[in-house]
Amino acid sequence: MRVRKFAAIDIGSNAVRLLTHNVIEEKGKKTQFRKSALIRVPVRLGEDSFTVGEISERNIERIINTMKAFKLLMDVAGVEKYRACATSAMREANNGNEVIQRIKEEAGIQIDLIDGKQEAAIIASTDLKELINDHQSYLYIDVGGGSTEFTLFTGGNIKISKSFKLGTVRLLKGLVKEETWEKLEDWIRQNTKGLQKISIIGSGGNINKLHKMSGRKEGEPLSYIWLNAQYNFLTSLSYEDRVSELGLNPDRADVIIPAAQIFLSSAKWSGTKKIYVPKIGLSDGIIKTLYSDNMS
């Protein structure tokens, strides 16, 4: 048996994450991927990028310090290979490339700037296919702070993928036009028309938290009815009450509402009644592709 360590850094619009996996290789057996640790730091780059068009010096310092810490943690853990990917907030910032260069020089971390299509492709390389029944259709939705990636599976294969500039931080800041919602509705209705037994597979920190709050067991889906009721309950509370009474983290208590809105709207337009939450996302996909590339 051989145990190897791989890591993924996901630089999103709402938070930055370091995920490490133990990759277990054993002759004659399927390679196993087991999560070792997940560290999340709430550096909300999207608040800068989507409002003023560039990342502030304060957040540049925070992201550099975060990357320095991640580098030390990966060294201590004995990580063999890593990949760091930045999405919409860094991509849309006027000084995004300068920030990436500073991170490389000061923290020693090389960052890949990926677009929505690349993000969707990486996510699709996760264990999604193991969760998918060939006789059903699934709309996979990964809600981020700056954008949301949609992938439609039919017959066990990807039919179509698309990224929309519809993220939780963008919605909080009132930066999403009605036209974007309309385009999403048209896309979902058009591509799910005529499909039977369609379910949603949701990913992202917010839907993971909602699933945990529901008390459901792992693998048990959320119902549209429950999510709608929970959305109404959350919106009836003040931000302060969501933090103090529900125990939500301050950087989760605001974005969880627009995230629920995205899932509810998508479920309504696709005629979906169930939302599965397998707790996989971009970071998991990065590790899978990293390992696959390393083996080829």
Rank of each mutant, 00 (worst) to 15 (best):
I11E: 04
L19R: 03
H21T: 04
V23T: 03
E26F: 04
G28N: 06
K30H: 13
K35Q: 14
A37F: 02
L38K: 07
R40S: 03
P42G: 11
R44A: 11
G46S: 10
S49G: 13
F50K: 07
G53M: 10
I60D: 06
I60R: 12
L72Q: 15
L73Q: 13
V79F: 11
Y82N: 04
A84N: 00
A89I: 06
M90P: 02
M90E: 03
R102K: 15
A107T: 10
A107L: 08
G108I: 08
I109P: 10
D112L: 05
L113N: 05
I123Y: 11
L128I: 03
L128T: 05
K129L: 14
E130R: 13
N133A: 13
Y138G: 02
L139K: 11
Y140M: 00
Y140G: 09
G146H: 02
S147K: 12
T148V: 05
E149H: 10
F150A: 00
L152F: 02
F153R: 00
I158M: 10
S161Y: 00
T168R: 08
R170N: 10
G174Y: 01
K177Y: 12
E178V: 02
E179D: 14
E182V: 08
Q190G: 14
Q196F: 13
K197E: 14
K197T: 09
S199P: 12
S199C: 05
I200L: 14
G202V: 10
G205Y: 01
N208I: 12
K212Q: 07
E220G: 04
L222R: 03
S223K: 01
W226E: 10
L227S: 09
T235K: 15
S238M: 13
R242L: 02
S244H: 15
L248K: 09
L248W: 01
A253V: 12
A260E: 03
F263D: 04
F263H: 09
S265G: 12
A267R: 04
W269Q: 07
W269F: 14
K273L: 10
Y276W: 00
K279T: 06
D284P: 00
I286V: 09
L290P: 04
Y291I: 07
D293N: 14
D293R: 06
N294R: 13
M295V: 00
